[in-house]
């Protein structure tokens, strides 16, 4: 019974980042605070994906990232697949950084996150501009990217603290 409880607790605690990721995509909770401050919006999904793919890819998994992207497109009314490609790009950059770096600190993470954010937004922009009729505001998109980059260290600190209470095995 004790083992069962421990396993259940471990699986709930370990799945929390994934649950948050799904919930952010499926629910009306958003990180766009136009009512408080007109230009303030950031993409928490990208931060979650980048952080956990970099630190421990077994927490999220590429399949889940793909589905989260599809759900996000449906809820936001975007062409199907666009967020999935954008999120998988972030995942790819994180996986690549994990392969080539040994010593990881907040500042190296933050700097490399800029690369992931750049490629993610670039892919998003190229697909929207060339293969869809949607119009987007470059200013809003830039603000969104800027604040996503700016908030990364805060979320990093929270997740780093959370990682200590997780029951993680060595990353594969």
């Amino acid at each position: 019974m004790a083992i069962l409880y421990k396993n259940l607790k471990a699986s709930v605690v370990n799945s929390l980042p994934l649950i948050i990721l799904y919930y952010l995509s499926i629910s009306e909770i958003d990180t766009h605070f136009s009512n408080m401050f007109e230009i303030l919006s950031f993409n928490l999904q990208i931060i979650i994906i980048y952080y956990w793919m970099l630190k421990n890819s077994s927490v999220l998994g590429n399949g889940h990232i793909f589905f989260v992207g599809i759900i996000n497109d449906v809820v936001m009314g975007l062409p199907l697949g666009i967020s999935a490609i954008s999120y998988l790009t972030v995942s790819f950059v994180a996986s690549y950084i994990r392969q080539v770096t040994v010593n990881i600190s907040l500042f190296t993470d933050w700097f490399t996150f800029l690369i992931a954010l750049f490629f993610s937004n670039l892919v998003y922009l190229i697909l929207i501009l060339n293969f869809s009729d949607l119009q987007i505001s470059y200013v809003d998109m830039s603000y969104n990217a800027f604040f996503t980059f700016l908030f990364y260290p805060f979320i990093w600190v929270i997740f780093n603290f959370y990682k200590k209470i997780m029951f993680l095995r060595a990353d594969d």
């Binding site: 590429n62 793909f66 062409p79 666009i82 490609i85 790819f92 869809s132 594969d172």
Partner: peptide
């Protein structure tokens, strides 16, 4: 290559496979 193709112990799909699937879905929808 490793980032794109490695699946790991708990990953069922490689990154490159999912990227291809997402791209196909996008173009079919577009």
């Amino acid at each position: 290559r490793s980032a794109l193709l490695k699946k790991g112990a708990r990953q069922k799909f490689s990154l490159v496979f999912l990227l291809i699937v997402a791209t196909i879905i996008f173009f079919l929808d577009a």
